[in-house]
Design a protein around this nucleic acid. Structure first.
Ligand SMILES: [Mn+2]
Ligand SMILES: [Mn+2]
Ligand SMILES: [Mn+2]
Ligand SMILES: [Mn+2]
Lengths: 231, 231
DNA sequence: TCGACGATTTAGGTATACCTAATAAGTAGG
DNA sequence: CCTACTTATTAGGTATACCTAAATCGTCGA
């Protein structure tokens, strides 16, 4: 039995499958395809099928799986996925606020540590941080009970008319992009004016009270979630 | 390739073998037997032989191994072992000082996390703690360069005459024992008077300025390292 | 010097989590 | 309603790190 199984009982790999299904299933928790999972996790589709069958066939199944019809999380699977997301986001917040990490480095560290911290560690950093509800990228931190509000924001690429918005959150998975965006002032909480859409689904914007126009690529715009602002 | 390989390149298991060889080899760095390793790591002797052959046969061998003659660390192996010990002891210090863990809980958490933290994490907690040189159990923390002073202390079971001592360090691997000892005031830095040896290699002592005699079992005495004190 | 006995190694096998190549199932266009 | 094509699954393999049982090796006492 080589692969580390945590107190919890499942391996790091299993955790990662559950998180990916949670994330790809979206707020509607719709079924996720093998291909989408394969791409997200960077493994071959055949490996996905294997793992899903194992997860679905356990005594306490973590997913509901039907051949050729994708998967969704079981309630046990969802519980564990949210637990891991809670760990991830608390760790990110801790690294940023207490250990003064640069914003673009917190994700990779959290991605590893999320699987290995104890409940005590989780509880202690949460307490130290004053039980935060939002992580440094603007994402909700699931509660200890596994509750997480649905995201009300929209992706910047979905904006049709121009207007003024608040940046709700920024995707943290690509450190390069995150660092570049942050250097332009694009981070959770900042104000953002959308001038117009550009070719190839890009976006011309300005940030804060600056008048300088920024031309965001489609990739960058896709990493930014915003909410309309009254003023 | 299932088993997590860190930035460093070796797996958690490999790290644990290296640490065990460092610890069992003692300050003299003498050869360690398969049996001793099997017992320390809780795996079958056959598994030890397997792993040692693999470690010795790598392009950059981590151990020097000769059939039937035990192993010692190569210089690369020693470097990595000390790096992991540094992680372990820094993490313990951090958990104790910053996250207010009870002393008996730091070891198990550190035992897991030591393999997964980045160099950045190591550097940041070291800085936060003011670059400590001693962990909460009284053990030296290896430097970033992999230097660690040899222990000058002796084990309480080795005392022949009675006398007054300072507690240098307390073994941290058994949480139960550690908690019990701490409850009696037996912890690094405390003053300890040895009255006399008892049957079965136990020890009759008193702690601090208390006159109350404590009867330590051989097991407990074996976990305590002391240094003679002038006064 | 010869066993006996314990220590160690070899042989053969398991589980996890991957992979590639071959096959089968869905799905949409004609 | 039947291909052509894409998506998914099955089949067969690899590496890590374990295990048990069956050899062997080394040493120590007679
Ligand atoms: Mn993240
Ligand atoms: Mn938790
Ligand atoms: Mn420890
Ligand atoms: Mn390090």
């Amino acid at each position: 039995m080589p692969v580390r199984r945590r107190t919890n009982g499942n391996s790091e790999s299993v955790d990662n499958y559950l998180k990916a299904i949670l994330s790809l299933g979206g707020p509607g928790e719709h079924r996720v395809t093998s291909t989408a999972l394969a791409e997200r996790l960077g493994v071959a589709p055949a490996s996905i099928t294997n793992m899903l069958q194992k997860l679905a066939g356990a005594m306490e199944p973590l997913v509901e799986y039907e051949r050729h019809r994708g998967v969704k999380l079981s309630s046990a699977g969802k519980r564990r996925a949210l637990e891991v997301v809670r760990h991830h986001r608390l760790i990110e917040t801790f690294l940023y606020k207490v250990l003064d990490y640069p914003i673009e480095e917190v994700h990779d560290e959290a991605e590893r540590l999320e699987h290995f911290i104890s409940e005590r560690f989780e509880e202690r950093i949460a307490a130290k941080l004053g039980h935060p509800t939002i992580d440094p990228h603007g994402h909700f931190i699931p509660t200890m009970e596994g509750e997480m509000p649905a995201q009300a924001s929209i992706v910047l690429t979905e904006v049709v008319d121009g207007g003024t918005f608040l940046i709700d959150s920024v995707d943290d998975r690509d450190a390069e992009t995150l660092k570049a965006l942050e250097a332009q002032g694009i981070k959770a909480g900042a104000r953002l004016k959308v001038k117009r859409r550009t070719a190839a689904e890009g976006c011309l914007v300005s940030v804060g009270r600056s008048a300088k126009a920024l031309d965001l690529s489609r990739e960058m715009a896709g990493d930014i979630r915003i909410v309309p602002v009254g003023s």
